[in-house]
Amino acid sequence: MSVLVAFVAAVLVGCGTWLLLQRRLSRIIIGVGLLGHAGNMLLMVSGGRRGTAPLIGTGDPAGFSDPLPQALALTAIVITFGITLFLLALGFRSWQLTNDDVVEDDVEDRFIARQQRVDRDIADEILAEAAQAAEEDRR
């Protein structure tokens, strides 16, 4: 690994993070794509040395690049590709439903956050009742 490769991976991660931290699914997908490239970049150099293509009969096996990370990277690329397609489908469905691909906040969480729930909590009910009972008791 060289400093340059680590730096490129770092830039990819930085840009990917920047894209992840907002609401558009299509940007998020691009961000995830950049992160994936960073992972592949690191996998690619993880064998520790550069070499010729690992094909038996094309050269000295000692000069081959490490084939295992290549296989791992290939698997990772394909898996990320598959999941990204699914994410695209989610964006597509979101467009069907809302005409946009914004990732909205969770409604229930927002209700709780705004203390807006109209339905009174069972606990509240019970507590109020108990408080009343205690009050009567005090007379």
Binding site: L97, T98, N99, E104, Q116
Partner: peptide, 9 residues
Amino acid sequence: SVVSDLFEL
């Protein structure tokens, strides 16, 4: 589509 405007809580 009723919930298309999810943002409006």
